[in-house]
Computed example of a mutant assay.
Amino acid sequence: MVLKWIFDRLMALIGLLILWPVLLVVAILVKVKMPGGPALFVQKRVGKDGKLFDCHKFRTMTVKHNGSTVSVAGDSRITPLGAKLRHYKLDELPGLWDVLIGNMSFVGPRPDVPGYADQLKRDDRDVLKLRPGITGPATLKYRLEDEMIADYVAKKQAEGDKRDAQEIAVEYNDTVIYPDKVRLNYYYYHHYSFMKDIQMMCCTVLGKKMEYNHELI
């Protein structure tokens, strides 16, 4: 994957040089629209070989909040500006820095919080041999994950489920979405293709779908 390593750093540098005005504008908007906290959200995530690193994003939630790492569309913790940043993936732009310094790749599994990565068993731990990515097969398939979870929560509650929305969301993530992401990322590791990486990046930017492992993502 030497070509991937070179491509990541070169494109991250070019991206930062071209997009720095966008990053500046978004940072200012976050500070103005969501005062009282930093523009960037920095959190420890699990990287290549299970090593922790600081993952950078634009902040999309209120400063003082408690709750699960699983978020739902309409979550009160997510500000109106934050919802827009998430929908258009602008909150991910600071990840270009993480790619440039080698903690992340453009394409790979999304970096998990420690609690989830620790659950990987046996062959599934092959996923940890990859640098986490800004996009990837699982990211493409679940690009509207917040909305998907919200729809599921609404469906369950309409059926009479009396549990808290966050509890339903976590269950759906843990039993359906997360295992499927692991499956996709495991396939990616064992069937790596540089051209597929390029295709995934283009689909991410353009908001398009693509065929991958005999399914549409």
Rank of each mutant, 00 (worst) to 15 (best):
S71Q: 15
F53T: 03
L93P: 04
F41M: 13
V30T: 04
A158C: 07
D75Y: 01
L206W: 13
E92A: 00
S76D: 10
E159G: 10
D49I: 01
C55P: 14
S68T: 03
D98P: 08
G37Q: 11
W5Q: 15
I134W: 03
D164A: 13
D8E: 02
D112Q: 14
P109K: 04
D161M: 01
W97L: 10
R59Y: 03
V113H: 04
P114Q: 05
K162P: 09
A117L: 15
D118K: 07
V107M: 06
R131G: 02
G133Q: 11
D8K: 01
T62S: 11
D54L: 03
R9Q: 13
Q119W: 07
D123I: 04
T62I: 15
D75K: 05
L206Y: 14
P132L: 04
V205L: 03
K33P: 02
A73Y: 12
P94K: 07
N103D: 09
Q119P: 15
D75C: 05
K57W: 02
N66P: 09
G102R: 00
D91F: 03
G160R: 01
R122Y: 10
S105E: 15
L206S: 14
I14H: 13
E145V: 05
V176Q: 10
I28E: 06
R125V: 00
L13K: 15
K121V: 03
L29Q: 11
K156E: 03
K89H: 08
D164C: 08
V182C: 12
H190Y: 02
A83I: 06
P111V: 05
G95T: 14
D197L: 02
L10F: 10
D49F: 00
G133T: 03
P94M: 05
I101K: 12
F41I: 11
G15A: 07
R183F: 02
P114T: 03
L16A: 07
P38K: 09
I198D: 11
V127K: 07
L10Y: 06
P109R: 04
D123W: 05
L90T: 08
W97S: 14
P80L: 13
V170D: 11
L17W: 14
K181G: 07
E171P: 00
M34E: 06
G67F: 13
L100T: 11
N185K: 12
Y88I: 02
Y142G: 13
T204P: 06
D164H: 05
K51Q: 10
A165H: 05
A158T: 08
I134H: 04
G160Y: 00
Y188C: 00
G160L: 01
K196C: 06
I177W: 04
R143V: 00
L16I: 01
I198M: 05
C55L: 11
H87Q: 14
